[in-house]
Design a protein around this nucleic acid. Structure first.
Length: 583
RNA sequence: GUCCUCGUAGCUCAGUCGGAUAGAGCAACGGAUUCCUAAUCCGUAGGCCGUGCGUUCAAAUCGCGCCGGGGACACCA
């Protein structure tokens, strides 16, 4: 009898692996085939067939290896079939199918085994060690401290946080980091914007600075500045660099808002990394020296941008310091120094990412808005230049969020200061709706967020749909007590209906869903899984009485229902969404 | 012009980094309620997977070329 807790998929991998070993031993196949299997480098796969009649698992091994063996695929498949060890075959029926697939049908007895496994492992079910203890740093949000978060930032926030949760679940050591761009030109703009509103509030208005942030929040900061410093800054000019004391207060207040928004969505960071520390601690000079020493910097003239017309006056023929990004696959060499002698944002970003690498993470993940997509190559290029490591950094890009209400689009414009903030949306719909909804699409696809639907208590609202499935699980159990029915262990063999076996199969796929969502950095896979699971459960619930009079059957169905509730709860937990027991 | 991204049912999108007869939700149409929450479910209909070539035993998936949408393209971040 196979051990409880061993995932079915692993057993099938074992079957195929041992079968191949034997064929190698018999000289049918060359030894190399074993080196790769079941790693990533092989074409040989064990997968879940779409078609149910094709079984629970299927392998293409014979199709892939037919040429190497000099045999027809079906003949090789037949050899593989007879080479598989009988001791692992308990409850698994294998057959040759199609052009040379070997299909594995798992018996109902074996399938049902997952129910006690889920109930035993509880909150741990779905967790694994597939991540192999890797140290991963996920950097996300990193919204500039120049204004409140908008919904687009929110999407990045949820995406990053759930990627981090998923990676933890598969056994990675994950840390979350927020990069604060608290140095640079946009911060000066913020400072001047505050001074402008400050003078306005004190009754000494001036012309607004050429570039300024129009939002209400700037006025709030100005008021706070008055409260703290009174008229101290009235004589300060609105051009040039604003005083540090003013800028720092502004950053502190804006970051306070951002932190509280994140807090409302239960997003916690391990590190808040300030760009200023890079400048202060010489990180940038270190990077420049390193690049210089490796002949990765040269002086050159920047090619004019291709996308727009450049007037002759605008044209810049100046020699400047460029990083040889083209050596690492980027389209152009990128500037490291501004005309005023200060480093570019890119230079700081190299230093920042190099700093991450030096902290010893085996993997870096950045979540950016899609509008920064053009930036991916150069940062990856720089990181490779600094560390010699390729593919250390994964960048996940999130597309825009369109807010709608009653079918009409809610217009957002940062320039006009009328954008709808994340805070407003959170107050309107709540964290659960926002978190779940932001993951109902792959991050690369645009997303419509319907404010009305997201807070509606209807089956059209995917959040409620899944949460309600969970609530139902508990509602049945309450009913059981209410009626004073006995809660016996039940006989799982009584679960013979097609719907029951399908539900059980789906429960068994939860761990691999978590794993694939984590490894591919695609949290939406989990969202889809939960919606499917909820749908299947609702269907089952509607067509079968859980609280049957027969205690044996009742107990079995209750176990299935509880296992389903467990999986939904675990899944929602990975999404950071609550699993209410009643609604 | 270059790079990124997307193109799948009327609409919004999945499709597990090549698998066997391409899925879901919404919308449309037809049903289910003396019953554990109808906040739910069941059924019908709907497709040249943008397009052409190529790679392969096998392509919605990979490569190249077009077509179309979105985004990014010098010392802003």
């Amino acid at each position: 009898m196979p051990r409880k807790g061993v995932v079915m998929r692993e057993i099938v991998f074992g079957l195929v692996g041992r079968g191949l070993e034997r064929l190698v031993g018999e000289g049918v196949l060359p030894g190399e085939v074993l080196a790769a299997f079941p790693g990533a480098g092989t074409e040989i796969k064990v997968e879940r067939p779409r078609e149910r009649s094709h079984g629970d698992f299927s392998t293409n091994a014979a199709l892939v290896l037919a040429r190497l063996a000099g045999m027809k695929p079906r003949d090789l498949a037949q050899r593989l079939l007879s080479a598989m060890p009988a001791d692992l075959l308990d409850g698994v029926r294998c057959e040759l199918a199609g052009p040379g697939f070997v299909n594995f049908h798992v018996s109902p007895e074996r399938l049902r085994n997952v129910i006690p496994v889920i109930l035993q492992r509880g909150a741990d079910y779905g967790h694994s060690r597939a991540g192999n203890g890797q140290r991963v740093l996920v950097e996300f949000v990193s919204a500039n401290p120049t204004g409140p978060m908008h919904v687009g930032h929110g999407r990045g926030a949820v995406t990053g946080d759930v990627i981090a949760r998923l990676l933890s679940a598969i056994g990675c050591a994950v840390e979350r980091e927020y990069y604060i761009n608290d140095a640079g030109a946009q911060i000066d703009v913020l400072g001047r914007s505050v001074l402008y509103r400050y003078r306005e509030a004190l009754g000494c208005p001036t012309e607004p600075p050429a570039d300024h942030y129009p939002g209400e929040y700037v006025i709030d900061i100005a008021r706070a500045l008055i409260a703290r410093d009174d008229k101290k800054w009235l004589a300060t000019p609105l051009s040039g660099k604003p005083p540090v004391e003013v800028v720092d207060l502004a950053i502190e207040l804006v970051m306070g808002e951002i932190r509280s928004d994140l807090e409302s969505m239960a997003i916690h960071f391990d590190h808040w990394f300030s760009e200023r520390t890079l400048h202060a601690e010489g990180g940038i000079t270190r990077v420049m020296a390193h690049l210089q020493a490796n002949d990765l910097i040269h002086e050159g003239v920047l090619e004019p941008p291709k996308g727009r017309e450049i007037s002759p006056e605008e044209q810049d023929d100046r020699l400047q310091v460029l990083f040889r990004a083209t050596r690492f696959g980027d389209d152009a060499d990128r500037p490291l120094m501004k005309a005023d002698g200060t480093p570019t944002y890119f230079a700081a970003d190299i230093a920042y990412h190099f700093d991450k690498a030096r902290r010893g993470y085996t993997r870096l993940i950045d979540v950016w808005g899609a509008d920064h997509g053009g930036y991916v190559k150069r940062v990856q290029a720089a990181l490779e230049a600094m560390t010699g490591q390729k593919e250390l950094l994964d960048v996940v890009l999130t597309q825009m969020v369109n807010l709608t209400q009653g079918g009409k689009q809610v217009r957002m414009s940062k320039r006009a200061g009328t954008f709808v903030t994340l805070r407003e949306v959170l107050d309107e719909t709540g964290s659960d709706a926002v978190r779940f909804w932001f993951l109902t699409r792959s991050s690369g696809a645009g997303l419509d967020f319907d404010l009305d639907l997201a807070k509606s208590r209807s089956n059209d609202n995917p959040v409620f749909y899944v949460q309600y499935a969970h609530a139902r699980v508990h509602s049945v159990q309450n009913k059981l007590k209410e009626r004073g029915l006995s809660d016996e262990e039940g006989d799982l063999a009584r679960l013979t209906a097609q719907e029951e076996l399908d539900l059980i199969r789906l429960l068994g796929m939860f761990p691999e869903t978590v794993e694939s969502a984590a490894l591919s950095r695609e949290p939406h896979r989990l969202t889809y899984y939960l919606s499917d699971l909820a749908a299947m459960f609702h269907g089952y619930y509607n067509n079968y009485r859980i609280l049957d009079e027969d205690p044996g059957l009742r107990g079995a169905r209750l176990a299935l229902v509880r296992a389903t509730g467990r999986v939904i709860a675990n899944g929602l937990d990975l999404l950071g969404v609550s699993a209410p027991e009643s609604m």
